[in-house]
Amino acid sequence: MTRMHNPSRGSSGSDNPVADEPPEWSDVDEDAIEERVVELAEQGHDPAMIGLKLRDEGVKGTPIPDVKLATGKKVTEILEENDADPELPSDLRNLIEQAVNLRDHMEENPQDHQNKRALQNTEAKIRRLADYYRGDELDEDFTYNYEVAVELLEE
C-alpha cells in the first residue's frame, strides 16, 4: 500500500497463514477468552493491544494466536457485545494523539516548518477519517479542532 504524503511506494505486508481452526495446543475456553478481552479493555487497552497481549501472555498461560479462530468473533465484536468498546476508533484516536503532540511541539518550536506541514497533513487525515466515522461511531455534529481533541484524550 502506498503512503499518502510520501513519494515512496510503500512495501507489501505479509499475510497470515490460512487456517480454519485454532491450533491443537491452544485449547482455551471461548468464555475465558472473552472475559480476558473485556478485562484488558477495562484496563484501557485498545483492540490491537488486546490482540498482542493475548498472543504474548494468553489466557491462564496459554497463548491465543488468533482470537477470531478461537472464538469465531473479532476482538471489536466481543467488546461491542459487552459494552466495553472505546469511545473513539483506535485509528482516529492515534491520529488525534499525534496531532496534539505535534501542536504542542509547534508551540515550543514555531520555526519548525517540516512539523508544521506534518501537523497539517495529520489534521487533514483526521478530518477525512471523522467524515468516514460520522454518524456511525461519532456524533453527527462532530468537528475536529485542537480543544475538542484535548478533551477527548483526557477522558
Rank of each mutant, 00 (worst) to 15 (best):
H105N: 10
E87I: 02
M49H: 11
N82I: 03
V38C: 02
D66Y: 12
V150H: 01
A99R: 09
Y144P: 02
T76A: 10
G44Y: 03
E35F: 06
L54R: 06
A32V: 00
G44P: 06
L152Q: 05
K74G: 12
D91A: 06
N121A: 09
P63W: 15
L119Q: 05
K74Q: 12
S11V: 08
D66M: 05
M49P: 02
V75T: 15
N82F: 07
I33W: 08
S14T: 10
D136S: 13
T71A: 10
Q114G: 03
L119W: 08
H45I: 03
D31P: 01
L153W: 00
P47V: 04
D66G: 08
E155F: 00
E21N: 05
K53H: 10
A124R: 11
E108T: 11
S26Y: 10
R55N: 10
K53G: 00
H113C: 05
K53F: 15
Y146Q: 11
V75E: 09
S8K: 01
H105E: 10
N145Y: 14
N145V: 10
E108A: 15
H45S: 05
E77Y: 07
D141G: 08
E108L: 11
N109P: 03
A70F: 14
L153D: 00
E108S: 14
M1P: 13
D20E: 12
E107M: 07
R3I: 10
L102M: 09
G10N: 04
A48C: 03
P65V: 15
T143N: 13
D20K: 06
M4R: 12
H105W: 12
V28D: 00
P7Y: 00
D15Y: 06
V100N: 05
I33Y: 03
E154T: 05
E123I: 09
L54P: 04
A149Y: 10
E81V: 06
L92H: 05
E35P: 00
S14E: 10
Y146T: 07
V150P: 01
Q114Y: 07
E30K: 15
E77W: 07
A84I: 02
R93N: 04
V38E: 00
D66A: 15
H5V: 15
E107W: 00
E147H: 15
R36F: 11
A84T: 03
N109L: 02
R134K: 13
P17H: 05
T143H: 14
A32R: 03
V28M: 02
K74M: 11
R36M: 09
D112W: 07
A41H: 08
S8W: 00
Y146P: 02
V148D: 02
L52Y: 15
D104V: 04
S12W: 04
Y133R: 02
P23T: 11
K74H: 12
E123N: 07
E151L: 04
D56K: 14
L95S: 09
R127V: 14
G135Q: 06
Y133C: 02
Y146M: 12
E77A: 13
E87T: 07
S90G: 06
A70V: 12
D29E: 09
Y146I: 12
K73P: 04
W25G: 01
N115K: 14
E147L: 11
P63R: 12
E97M: 11
D66F: 11
I126C: 06
W25E: 07
